[in-house]
Design a protein around this nucleic acid. Sequence first.
DNA 1: CGCGATCCTTGACCGAAATCAAACCTGCCG
DNA 2: CGGCAGGTTTGATTTCGGTCAAGGATCGCG
Lengths: 203, 203
Amino acid sequence: MGRRRSVSAGEPLIWEDDDSLLVANVIEGVLKLTTSTADGREQIVGVAYPSDFIGRPFGQTSAASVVALTDARVCVFARNDFDRFAREHPELEHKLLERTLAELDRTRAWMMLLGRKSAPEKIATFLLDMSERLADNGCMTHTGPARHFTLPFSRQQVADLLGLTIETVSRQFTKLKADGVVALPSRRDVEILDRAMLETLAG
Amino acid sequence: MGRRRSVSAGEPLIWEDDDSLLVANVIEGVLKLTTSTADGREQIVGVAYPSDFIGRPFGQTSAASVVALTDARVCVFARNDFDRFAREHPELEHKLLERTLAELDRTRAWMMLLGRKSAPEKIATFLLDMSERLADNGCMTHTGPARHFTLPFSRQQVADLLGLTIETVSRQFTKLKADGVVALPSRRDVEILDRAMLETLAG
DNA sequence: CGCGATCCTTGACCGAAATCAAACCTGCCG
DNA sequence: CGGCAGGTTTGATTTCGGTCAAGGATCGCG
Protein backbone atom coordinates (compact mmCIF):
# COMPACT_ATOMS: atom_id res chain seq x y z
CA MET A 1 0.00 0.00 0.00
CA GLY A 2 1.04 3.63 -0.59
CA ARG A 3 1.59 4.76 -4.15
CA ARG A 4 4.91 6.21 -5.24
CA ARG A 5 4.58 9.56 -6.91
CA SER A 6 6.99 12.01 -8.48
CA VAL A 7 6.46 15.74 -8.07
CA SER A 8 8.52 18.22 -10.02
CA ALA A 9 9.80 21.48 -8.60
CA GLY A 10 7.00 24.03 -8.22
CA GLU A 11 4.25 21.45 -8.47
CA PRO A 12 1.62 21.39 -5.70
CA LEU A 13 0.76 18.23 -3.80
CA ILE A 14 -1.93 19.44 -1.38
CA TRP A 15 -3.98 22.62 -1.45
CA GLU A 16 -4.74 24.76 1.55
CA ASP A 17 -8.27 24.12 2.87
CA ASP A 18 -8.45 21.06 0.70
CA ASP A 19 -10.46 18.23 2.05
CA SER A 20 -7.52 16.46 3.58
CA LEU A 21 -7.59 13.50 1.21
CA LEU A 22 -4.05 12.32 1.35
CA VAL A 23 -0.98 11.98 3.50
CA ALA A 24 2.51 11.16 2.34
CA ASN A 25 6.05 10.35 3.25
CA VAL A 26 8.89 12.21 1.57
CA ILE A 27 11.36 9.86 -0.07
CA GLU A 28 13.48 12.39 -1.89
CA GLY A 29 13.46 16.16 -2.38
CA VAL A 30 12.27 19.12 -0.35
CA LEU A 31 8.74 20.52 -0.09
CA LYS A 32 7.27 23.63 1.51
CA LEU A 33 4.13 23.96 3.63
CA THR A 34 2.52 27.35 3.27
CA THR A 35 -0.47 29.37 4.39
CA SER A 36 -1.66 32.43 2.53
CA THR A 37 -3.91 35.40 3.16
CA ALA A 38 -6.71 36.41 0.81
CA ASP A 39 -4.56 39.23 -0.59
CA GLY A 40 -1.69 36.94 -1.53
CA ARG A 41 0.79 37.27 1.31
CA GLU A 42 2.45 33.94 1.92
CA GLN A 43 4.13 32.41 4.94
CA ILE A 44 6.08 29.16 4.80
CA VAL A 45 5.05 27.30 7.96
CA GLY A 46 7.12 24.17 7.50
CA VAL A 47 9.64 22.44 5.28
CA ALA A 48 9.58 18.71 4.61
CA TYR A 49 12.80 16.78 3.94
CA PRO A 50 13.33 13.12 3.07
CA SER A 51 11.73 10.79 5.65
CA ASP A 52 9.41 13.57 6.85
CA PHE A 53 5.69 13.00 7.03
CA ILE A 54 3.27 15.42 5.37
CA GLY A 55 -0.48 15.86 5.50
CA ARG A 56 -3.03 15.92 8.28
CA PRO A 57 -4.26 12.58 9.62
CA PHE A 58 -7.39 12.52 11.77
CA GLY A 59 -8.61 15.89 10.57
CA GLN A 60 -11.06 17.14 8.01
CA THR A 61 -8.98 19.78 6.27
CA SER A 62 -5.30 20.43 5.92
CA ALA A 63 -4.20 23.80 7.23
CA ALA A 64 -1.44 24.29 4.68
CA SER A 65 -0.64 23.92 1.01
CA VAL A 66 2.22 21.62 0.09
CA VAL A 67 4.38 22.48 -2.93
CA ALA A 68 7.59 20.83 -4.07
CA LEU A 69 10.67 23.06 -3.94
CA THR A 70 12.86 20.59 -5.79
CA ASP A 71 11.93 17.60 -7.85
CA ALA A 72 10.68 15.14 -5.30
CA ARG A 73 9.48 11.59 -4.83
CA VAL A 74 6.84 10.87 -2.22
CA CYS A 75 4.85 7.89 -1.08
CA VAL A 76 1.18 8.88 -0.84
CA PHE A 77 -1.68 7.24 1.04
CA ALA A 78 -5.39 7.91 1.04
CA ARG A 79 -6.00 9.58 4.37
CA ASN A 80 -8.88 7.30 5.34
CA ASP A 81 -6.80 4.20 4.70
CA PHE A 82 -3.89 5.65 6.61
CA ASP A 83 -6.03 6.63 9.59
CA ARG A 84 -7.49 3.15 9.85
CA PHE A 85 -4.11 1.50 9.45
CA ALA A 86 -2.49 3.77 12.03
CA ARG A 87 -5.13 3.09 14.67
CA GLU A 88 -4.40 -0.62 14.31
CA HIS A 89 -0.63 -0.15 14.61
CA PRO A 90 0.38 1.58 17.85
CA GLU A 91 4.05 1.52 16.86
CA LEU A 92 3.25 3.63 13.81
CA GLU A 93 1.19 6.04 15.87
CA HIS A 94 4.00 6.30 18.39
CA LYS A 95 6.51 7.10 15.69
CA LEU A 96 4.15 9.68 14.24
CA LEU A 97 3.65 11.21 17.67
CA GLU A 98 7.38 11.56 18.22
CA ARG A 99 7.81 13.23 14.85
CA THR A 100 4.88 15.55 15.42
CA LEU A 101 6.23 16.59 18.81
CA ALA A 102 9.65 17.28 17.29
CA GLU A 103 8.04 19.30 14.51
CA LEU A 104 6.08 21.30 17.08
CA ASP A 105 9.34 22.09 18.91
CA ARG A 106 10.95 23.31 15.69
CA THR A 107 7.86 25.33 14.80
CA ARG A 108 7.86 27.02 18.21
CA ALA A 109 11.53 27.92 17.86
CA TRP A 110 10.65 29.46 14.50
CA MET A 111 7.90 31.56 16.15
CA MET A 112 10.59 33.18 18.28
CA LEU A 113 12.42 34.06 15.08
CA LEU A 114 9.32 35.45 13.37
CA GLY A 115 8.09 37.46 16.32
CA ARG A 116 11.23 38.77 17.92
CA LYS A 117 14.29 38.63 15.69
CA SER A 118 15.67 41.37 13.43
CA ALA A 119 16.37 40.82 9.74
CA PRO A 120 20.12 40.15 10.26
CA GLU A 121 19.32 37.70 13.07
CA LYS A 122 16.72 35.97 10.92
CA ILE A 123 19.13 35.50 8.03
CA ALA A 124 21.95 34.23 10.25
CA THR A 125 19.62 31.81 12.04
CA PHE A 126 18.30 30.62 8.71
CA LEU A 127 21.74 29.90 7.30
CA LEU A 128 22.82 28.00 10.40
CA ASP A 129 19.57 26.03 10.37
CA MET A 130 20.03 25.15 6.72
CA SER A 131 23.61 24.07 7.24
CA GLU A 132 22.37 21.56 9.82
CA ARG A 133 19.23 20.42 8.05
CA LEU A 134 20.89 19.85 4.71
CA ALA A 135 23.72 17.94 6.37
CA ASP A 136 21.31 15.46 7.91
CA ASN A 137 19.51 14.36 4.80
CA GLY A 138 21.89 12.66 2.46
CA CYS A 139 22.54 15.98 0.79
CA MET A 140 25.99 15.80 2.37
CA THR A 141 28.38 12.91 2.63
CA HIS A 142 29.66 13.64 6.13
CA THR A 143 27.49 14.36 9.13
CA GLY A 144 27.44 17.51 11.30
CA PRO A 145 26.88 21.05 10.06
CA ALA A 146 27.79 21.66 6.45
CA ARG A 147 30.17 24.39 5.40
CA HIS A 148 28.82 24.46 1.89
CA PHE A 149 25.30 23.68 0.70
CA THR A 150 22.77 24.39 -2.01
CA LEU A 151 19.61 26.14 -0.89
CA PRO A 152 16.35 24.52 -1.98
CA PHE A 153 14.83 28.03 -1.81
CA SER A 154 14.63 31.01 -4.10
CA ARG A 155 15.13 34.45 -2.53
CA GLN A 156 11.36 34.94 -2.47
CA GLN A 157 10.93 31.65 -0.64
CA VAL A 158 13.57 32.60 1.92
CA ALA A 159 11.58 35.80 2.44
CA ASP A 160 8.35 33.81 2.88
CA LEU A 161 10.09 31.59 5.42
CA LEU A 162 11.51 34.46 7.49
CA GLY A 163 8.65 36.95 7.25
CA LEU A 164 10.68 39.45 5.22
CA THR A 165 10.59 40.91 1.71
CA ILE A 166 12.79 39.65 -1.09
CA GLU A 167 14.68 42.97 -1.13
CA THR A 168 15.58 42.73 2.54
CA VAL A 169 16.76 39.13 2.11
CA SER A 170 18.90 40.16 -0.84
CA ARG A 171 20.45 43.08 1.03
CA GLN A 172 21.29 40.93 4.05
CA PHE A 173 22.90 38.27 1.85
CA THR A 174 24.94 40.94 0.13
CA LYS A 175 26.02 42.35 3.48
CA LEU A 176 27.14 38.96 4.79
CA LYS A 177 29.12 38.45 1.61
CA ALA A 178 30.71 41.90 1.85
CA ASP A 179 31.67 41.21 5.48
CA GLY A 180 33.30 37.92 4.49
CA VAL A 181 30.94 35.83 6.62
CA VAL A 182 29.71 33.76 3.68
CA ALA A 183 30.57 33.22 0.03
CA LEU A 184 27.80 32.99 -2.56
CA PRO A 185 29.27 31.17 -5.57
CA SER A 186 25.86 31.03 -7.27
CA ARG A 187 22.28 32.06 -6.57
CA ARG A 188 21.50 28.90 -4.64
CA ASP A 189 24.92 28.05 -3.20
CA VAL A 190 26.15 29.16 0.19
CA GLU A 191 29.54 28.65 1.74
CA ILE A 192 29.93 29.52 5.39
CA LEU A 193 33.28 31.22 5.94
CA ASP A 194 32.84 32.41 9.51
CA ARG A 195 30.46 30.21 11.46
CA ALA A 196 31.30 31.85 14.79
CA MET A 197 30.27 35.22 13.40
CA LEU A 198 27.03 33.76 12.06
CA GLU A 199 26.29 32.32 15.49
CA THR A 200 26.88 35.70 17.09
CA LEU A 201 24.62 37.38 14.55
CA ALA A 202 21.90 34.77 15.10
CA GLY A 203 21.53 36.04 18.69
CA MET B 1 -1.32 8.45 39.62
CA GLY B 2 -0.56 12.08 38.75
CA ARG B 3 -0.28 14.59 41.57
CA ARG B 4 -2.61 17.57 41.76
CA ARG B 5 -0.79 20.83 42.09
CA SER B 6 -1.85 24.46 42.43
CA VAL B 7 0.12 27.18 40.69
CA SER B 8 -0.56 30.82 41.39
CA ALA B 9 -0.51 33.54 38.74
CA GLY B 10 3.03 34.36 37.64
CA GLU B 11 4.52 31.17 39.08
CA PRO B 12 6.65 29.00 36.77
CA LEU B 13 5.96 25.31 36.28
CA ILE B 14 8.68 24.31 33.80
CA TRP B 15 11.86 26.14 32.84
CA GLU B 16 13.15 26.48 29.31
CA ASP B 17 16.00 24.03 28.63
CA ASP B 18 15.12 22.19 31.80
CA ASP B 19 15.65 18.53 31.78
CA SER B 20 12.13 17.70 30.82
CA LEU B 21 11.19 16.08 34.11
CA LEU B 22 7.47 16.48 34.14
CA VAL B 23 4.38 16.67 32.02
CA ALA B 24 0.96 17.83 33.11
CA ASN B 25 -2.69 18.27 32.29
CA VAL B 26 -4.35 21.61 32.91
CA ILE B 27 -7.42 21.29 35.11
CA GLU B 28 -8.16 24.94 35.67
CA GLY B 29 -6.56 28.25 34.70
CA VAL B 30 -4.43 29.47 31.83
CA LEU B 31 -0.66 29.09 31.34
CA LYS B 32 1.79 30.49 28.82
CA LEU B 33 4.60 28.66 26.99
CA THR B 34 7.48 30.96 26.18
CA THR B 35 10.93 31.01 24.64
CA SER B 36 13.42 33.77 25.30
CA THR B 37 16.62 35.08 23.79
CA ALA B 38 19.76 35.67 25.82
CA ASP B 39 19.07 39.41 25.86
CA GLY B 40 15.62 39.05 27.35
CA ARG B 41 13.26 39.26 24.41
CA GLU B 42 10.35 36.93 24.96
CA GLN B 43 7.93 35.21 22.61
CA ILE B 44 4.85 33.36 23.80
CA VAL B 45 4.76 30.19 21.67
CA GLY B 46 1.64 28.61 23.09
CA VAL B 47 -1.15 29.03 25.60
CA ALA B 48 -2.58 26.15 27.62
CA TYR B 49 -6.22 26.13 28.69
CA PRO B 50 -8.13 23.62 30.83
CA SER B 51 -7.86 20.06 29.45
CA ASP B 52 -4.71 20.97 27.48
CA PHE B 53 -1.58 18.91 27.83
CA ILE B 54 1.75 20.57 28.67
CA GLY B 55 5.32 19.32 28.70
CA ARG B 56 7.41 17.29 26.32
CA PRO B 57 7.07 13.51 26.44
CA PHE B 58 9.72 11.37 24.72
CA GLY B 59 12.29 14.15 24.67
CA GLN B 60 15.24 15.13 26.78
CA THR B 61 14.57 18.83 27.19
CA SER B 62 11.53 21.01 26.97
CA ALA B 63 11.81 23.78 24.40
CA ALA B 64 9.73 26.27 26.34
CA SER B 65 9.16 27.65 29.82
CA VAL B 66 5.69 27.28 31.28
CA VAL B 67 4.34 29.99 33.57
CA ALA B 68 0.85 30.37 34.98
CA LEU B 69 -1.05 33.44 33.79
CA THR B 70 -3.89 32.98 36.24
CA ASP B 71 -4.08 30.88 39.35
CA ALA B 72 -4.20 27.36 38.00
CA ARG B 73 -4.59 23.75 38.99
CA VAL B 74 -2.71 21.09 37.09
CA CYS B 75 -2.22 17.36 37.32
CA VAL B 76 1.50 16.58 37.03
CA PHE B 77 3.28 13.34 36.13
CA ALA B 78 6.92 12.39 36.21
CA ARG B 79 7.90 12.28 32.55
CA ASN B 80 9.47 8.84 32.75
CA ASP B 81 6.38 7.33 34.32
CA PHE B 82 4.17 9.03 31.79
CA ASP B 83 6.26 7.86 28.83
CA ARG B 84 6.15 4.26 30.03
CA PHE B 85 2.44 4.41 30.74
CA ALA B 86 1.68 6.00 27.37
CA ARG B 87 3.58 3.36 25.42
CA GLU B 88 1.43 0.72 27.07
CA HIS B 89 -1.83 2.52 26.30
CA PRO B 90 -2.31 3.15 22.59
CA GLU B 91 -5.59 4.96 23.22
CA LEU B 92 -3.76 7.53 25.30
CA GLU B 93 -1.07 7.94 22.67
CA HIS B 94 -3.72 8.35 20.00
CA LYS B 95 -5.46 11.05 22.00
CA LEU B 96 -2.14 12.79 22.56
CA LEU B 97 -1.34 12.56 18.86
CA GLU B 98 -4.65 14.17 17.91
CA ARG B 99 -4.06 16.99 20.36
CA THR B 100 -0.51 17.53 19.21
CA LEU B 101 -1.60 17.67 15.57
CA ALA B 102 -4.30 20.21 16.45
CA GLU B 103 -1.78 22.28 18.39
CA LEU B 104 0.60 22.18 15.43
CA ASP B 105 -2.19 23.48 13.17
CA ARG B 106 -2.88 26.35 15.55
CA THR B 107 0.82 27.12 15.86
CA ARG B 108 1.23 27.24 12.10
CA ALA B 109 -1.72 29.61 11.77
CA TRP B 110 0.00 31.80 14.35
CA MET B 111 3.21 31.81 12.27
CA MET B 112 1.23 33.44 9.48
CA LEU B 113 0.21 36.14 11.93
CA LEU B 114 3.74 36.68 13.26
CA GLY B 115 5.42 36.73 9.88
CA ARG B 116 2.98 38.49 7.64
CA LYS B 117 0.34 40.48 9.48
CA SER B 118 0.40 44.16 10.43
CA ALA B 119 -0.15 45.38 13.97
CA PRO B 120 -3.87 46.18 13.44
CA GLU B 121 -4.40 42.75 11.85
CA LYS B 122 -2.57 41.04 14.70
CA ILE B 123 -4.70 42.74 17.35
CA ALA B 124 -7.96 42.01 15.54
CA THR B 125 -6.99 38.38 15.00
CA PHE B 126 -5.99 38.09 18.63
CA LEU B 127 -9.29 39.44 19.94
CA LEU B 128 -11.33 37.13 17.70
CA ASP B 129 -9.17 34.18 18.72
CA MET B 130 -9.62 35.00 22.40
CA SER B 131 -13.37 35.38 22.03
CA GLU B 132 -13.49 31.82 20.70
CA ARG B 133 -10.95 30.25 23.00
CA LEU B 134 -12.40 31.70 26.17
CA ALA B 135 -15.90 30.66 25.15
CA ASP B 136 -14.87 27.03 24.84
CA ASN B 137 -13.38 26.55 28.26
CA GLY B 138 -15.98 26.98 30.91
CA CYS B 139 -15.08 30.65 31.13
CA MET B 140 -18.41 31.32 29.47
CA THR B 141 -21.81 29.82 30.15
CA HIS B 142 -22.98 29.60 26.54
CA THR B 143 -20.99 28.17 23.65
CA GLY B 144 -19.88 29.96 20.47
CA PRO B 145 -17.82 33.15 20.31
CA ALA B 146 -18.08 35.40 23.33
CA ARG B 147 -19.05 39.04 23.07
CA HIS B 148 -17.48 39.86 26.40
CA PHE B 149 -14.48 38.23 28.07
CA THR B 150 -11.66 38.81 30.52
CA LEU B 151 -8.17 38.54 29.08
CA PRO B 152 -5.78 36.28 30.96
CA PHE B 153 -2.97 38.49 29.59
CA SER B 154 -1.38 41.77 30.60
CA ARG B 155 -0.57 44.23 27.80
CA GLN B 156 3.04 43.07 27.86
CA GLN B 157 1.94 39.46 27.46
CA VAL B 158 -0.30 40.36 24.53
CA ALA B 159 2.78 42.01 23.01
CA ASP B 160 4.85 38.85 23.61
CA LEU B 161 2.15 36.78 21.96
CA LEU B 162 1.84 38.97 18.88
CA GLY B 163 5.49 39.92 18.39
CA LEU B 164 4.85 43.61 19.13
CA THR B 165 5.84 46.11 21.83
CA ILE B 166 3.57 47.03 24.70
CA GLU B 167 3.21 50.57 23.33
CA THR B 168 1.97 49.36 19.95
CA VAL B 169 -0.53 47.02 21.62
CA SER B 170 -1.80 49.86 23.78
CA ARG B 171 -2.17 52.21 20.82
CA GLN B 172 -4.08 49.64 18.77
CA PHE B 173 -6.44 48.93 21.67
CA THR B 174 -7.04 52.64 22.09
CA LYS B 175 -7.77 53.00 18.39
CA LEU B 176 -10.28 50.13 18.38
CA LYS B 177 -12.02 51.73 21.35
CA ALA B 178 -12.07 55.14 19.68
CA ASP B 179 -13.54 53.59 16.54
CA GLY B 180 -16.28 51.90 18.55
CA VAL B 181 -15.17 48.39 17.58
CA VAL B 182 -14.63 47.27 21.16
CA ALA B 183 -15.33 48.56 24.65
CA LEU B 184 -12.68 48.22 27.36
CA PRO B 185 -14.48 48.44 30.69
CA SER B 186 -11.28 47.59 32.58
CA ARG B 187 -7.66 46.69 31.83
CA ARG B 188 -8.44 43.04 31.35
CA ASP B 189 -12.01 43.17 30.05
CA VAL B 190 -12.98 43.32 26.42
CA GLU B 191 -16.41 43.70 24.91
CA ILE B 192 -16.72 43.20 21.17
CA LEU B 193 -19.13 45.79 19.75
CA ASP B 194 -18.56 45.24 16.04
CA ARG B 195 -17.47 41.71 15.27
CA ALA B 196 -17.84 42.15 11.51
CA MET B 197 -15.40 45.06 11.59
CA LEU B 198 -12.94 43.02 13.64
CA GLU B 199 -13.15 40.22 11.10
CA THR B 200 -12.45 42.66 8.28
CA LEU B 201 -9.49 44.10 10.17
CA ALA B 202 -8.13 40.60 10.87
CA GLY B 203 -7.61 40.13 7.11
C1' DC C 1 25.02 32.40 -29.92
C1' DG C 2 21.33 35.58 -28.95
C1' DC C 3 16.95 36.44 -27.20
C1' DG C 4 13.58 36.66 -23.67
C1' DA C 5 11.87 35.47 -19.19
C1' DT C 6 12.69 35.13 -14.65
C1' DC C 7 15.09 36.02 -10.74
C1' DC C 8 18.09 38.91 -8.18
C1' DT C 9 20.35 43.19 -6.75
C1' DT C 10 20.66 48.00 -5.88
C1' DG C 11 19.11 52.65 -4.90
C1' DA C 12 15.91 56.32 -3.27
C1' DC C 13 12.30 57.09 -0.43
C1' DC C 14 8.57 56.20 2.84
C1' DG C 15 6.04 54.67 6.67
C1' DA C 16 4.81 51.46 10.41
C1' DA C 17 6.33 50.14 14.50
C1' DA C 18 10.17 50.58 17.87
C1' DT C 19 12.37 53.45 21.08
C1' DC C 20 12.74 56.96 24.41
C1' DA C 21 10.50 59.64 27.77
C1' DA C 22 6.92 61.35 30.51
C1' DA C 23 2.52 61.34 32.54
C1' DC C 24 -1.46 58.77 34.04
C1' DC C 25 -4.38 55.30 36.03
C1' DT C 26 -5.58 51.60 39.38
C1' DG C 27 -5.20 48.74 42.95
C1' DC C 28 -3.02 47.92 47.34
C1' DC C 29 -1.57 48.57 51.96
C1' DG C 30 -0.48 51.14 55.85
C1' DC D 1 -7.57 58.64 53.11
C1' DG D 2 -2.79 59.09 51.10
C1' DG D 3 1.05 57.42 48.97
C1' DC D 4 3.45 54.14 46.45
C1' DA D 5 4.31 50.62 42.79
C1' DG D 6 3.09 48.36 38.86
C1' DG D 7 1.05 48.51 34.78
C1' DT D 8 -0.76 51.44 31.06
C1' DT D 9 -1.36 55.27 28.04
C1' DT D 10 0.28 59.01 25.33
C1' DG D 11 3.56 61.86 22.82
C1' DA D 12 7.97 62.89 20.22
C1' DT D 13 11.39 60.97 17.57
C1' DT D 14 14.08 57.44 15.29
C1' DT D 15 14.93 53.47 12.68
C1' DC D 16 14.39 49.29 10.42
C1' DG D 17 12.43 47.16 6.96
C1' DG D 18 8.95 47.88 3.28
C1' DT D 19 7.70 49.96 -1.12
C1' DC D 20 8.59 51.66 -5.54
C1' DA D 21 11.50 51.74 -9.42
C1' DA D 22 15.51 50.64 -12.28
C1' DG D 23 19.08 47.90 -13.68
C1' DG D 24 21.76 43.41 -13.97
C1' DA D 25 22.63 38.62 -13.84
C1' DT D 26 21.41 33.93 -15.07
C1' DC D 27 19.11 30.36 -17.30
C1' DG D 28 16.49 28.04 -20.78
C1' DC D 29 15.70 27.53 -25.48
C1' DG D 30 15.35 28.18 -30.33
